[in-house]
Simulated assay, not measured.
Amino acid sequence: MEDTKTLTFPLDPQSEKFITLALFTNVKNTAEIRDKLLSGELRCCLLKPALIIDPFQVAVAANKAVCAEMFGDLVTKSVFTETLYNLSITKSISKALNLFGSVDNDTDIMVGLIHKDGAQEAGMKSILELIQGEQVPVSRLGDFSDLEKIQKIYKINETELQVSTLVDSIATRISVKDFVSF
Rank of each mutant, 00 (worst) to 15 (best):
V163F: 14
I150Y: 07
F56C: 11
K64F: 10
L23V: 03
T81H: 14
G123K: 02
Q57K: 08
L84Y: 09
L130E: 10
A61W: 04
G142D: 02
Q14T: 14
M124I: 00
P10I: 06
F24S: 02
F71G: 00
N26S: 12
M110T: 03
V111Y: 04
Y154H: 07
N157W: 11
D54K: 09
I150K: 05
Y85A: 05
T165Q: 04
P137R: 08
L51V: 03
D143Y: 04
Q132A: 12
A119C: 09
K36P: 07
K95L: 11
A22N: 00
L130N: 11
V103K: 01
F144I: 11
F100M: 06
A59W: 02
A50Y: 04
I93D: 01
F18V: 03
N105I: 06
I156K: 06
L7C: 06
T90R: 11
V138E: 05
A59T: 07
F179Y: 10
L84H: 10
I109E: 09
D108C: 05
K5W: 02
P13V: 13
D12N: 13
F182W: 14
V138F: 04
I150E: 13
M70I: 08
D3P: 05
G40E: 02
P13G: 03
T20K: 01
I93F: 06
L21T: 12
P55E: 03
C45W: 13
E2Q: 06
R34I: 15
T90G: 08
N63D: 15
Q151T: 14
L97M: 06
R43V: 12
D106P: 04
P55S: 01
T107V: 01
D73Y: 03
F144H: 05
R140Q: 12
L99S: 10
C44G: 02
K77T: 13
E158Q: 10
Q57G: 02
S175Q: 15
L37A: 10
V176T: 04
D178Q: 09
F80K: 01
M70H: 04
F56M: 14
K149T: 13
F71K: 00
N63L: 10
D108W: 05
D73L: 08
C67I: 12
P55I: 07
D108K: 12
V136T: 07
T172F: 14
F71S: 00
K28D: 13
V138Q: 09
E148V: 15
L21N: 07
L113Q: 05
G40F: 00
T172M: 15
A119T: 05
M110H: 13
Q14D: 15
L46D: 01
P137E: 05
F71T: 04
F18E: 15
K5G: 13
E2Y: 14
L141W: 08
F56Q: 15
I52D: 09
K77Q: 13
I114T: 03
S78H: 07
V27A: 01
L42C: 03
V138R: 00
K17N: 06
A119H: 15
G133T: 04
T76E: 09
S92T: 05
F182P: 08
Y154D: 06
A171Y: 01
E158D: 11
P49S: 03
I19V: 15
N63G: 14
D35R: 14
I127G: 07
F182Q: 11
D104V: 08
E121F: 09
S94W: 10
I127A: 08
V136N: 05
K177E: 13
T30S: 12
P10R: 09
A122T: 06
H115I: 03
G40V: 00
I33K: 08
L113W: 00
S92G: 02
S88M: 06
